Simulated scan of single mutants.
Amino acid sequence: MTGLVLKNVTKSFKEGDTMVDALKNVSLTVEPGDFIAIIGPSGSGKSTLLSIAGALLQPSKGEVLVNGTDIGKMKEKELSSFRLTDIGFILQTSNLIPYLNVLDQLLLVCKMKGKVTSKEIDLAKTLLNNLGLGGKLTKFPNELSGGERQRVAIARAFVNNSNIILADEPTASLDSNRAFEVVKQIKKEVKDRNKAAVMVTHDERMLEFCDKVYRMADGMLTLES
């Protein structure tokens, strides 16, 4: 099975003397080319789910499969490498490095795997061109608008050709017009490159761009539409 699969995942945390379930028996399948959204109030478990899907947290129970590999059985060193090569993260803020220009923001991710190849440089330039940043390759983050910085972050998430794209409130710091533009661009890259993508969002105006919408409440996930 390709894509992302969560099977009966529970995540428990200790609070004082009691155990609290942040996720309760959650199951989810996201196939390549799917762009799904998860909505719900703060504290409902959305970020915990995203962290488990991104191999940042291990489930207390259940399985997490990425392209058929059970990441719950990996050791920490394997997980670090896996996160670098198989997961692309897009966060609330672009988290760009101030002293790197736009192209080098992407190439740094490639360098973390080893030597940067000409193929990776070409892909980085193609991604930036596709996102309307072809004329900004040598610009630094302080020379970009908020929307442009977030588009660089989108390109960075795709540059390692990761199978899974996880977006955590990617429009939180943007005005409406830029927010719509950013989510449309995420969707386009997901479809064009056949990636499995999950977006956590509070902004229900963005849901029209998603294939399916799930709601998270009290650690439980249900399909809305």
Rank of each mutant, 00 (worst) to 15 (best):
V159T: 06
N160K: 12
N160R: 15
N161M: 08
N161C: 11
N161I: 00
N161H: 11
N161S: 14
S162H: 09
S162G: 13
S162L: 07
N163A: 10
N163V: 09
I164R: 01
I164E: 00
I164H: 02
I165T: 08
I165Y: 06
L166G: 04
L166V: 07
L166H: 05
A167S: 04
A167T: 07
D168R: 06
E169W: 03
E169Y: 04
E169R: 00
E169F: 01
E169A: 03
P170S: 00
P170N: 00
T171I: 06
T171Q: 01
T171R: 04
A172K: 06
A172W: 05
A172G: 09
A172N: 07
S173F: 05
S173A: 12
S173L: 02
L174V: 04
L174C: 04
L174T: 00
D175G: 01
D175C: 02
S176Q: 10
N177P: 01
N177E: 07
R178N: 15
R178A: 15
A179C: 12
A179G: 12
A179F: 00
A179E: 01
A179I: 05
F180Y: 03
F180Q: 06
F180W: 04
E181S: 08
E181C: 02
E181R: 00
V182R: 03
V182N: 04
V182A: 05
V183N: 08
V183R: 01
V183G: 14
K184F: 04
K184A: 08
Q185S: 14
I186C: 12
I186G: 10
I186F: 01
I186S: 09
I186L: 14
K188Q: 15
K188L: 10
K188R: 13
E189A: 10
V190K: 07
V190R: 04
K191I: 09
K191E: 08
K191R: 11
D192S: 13
R193K: 15
R193M: 13
N194Y: 02
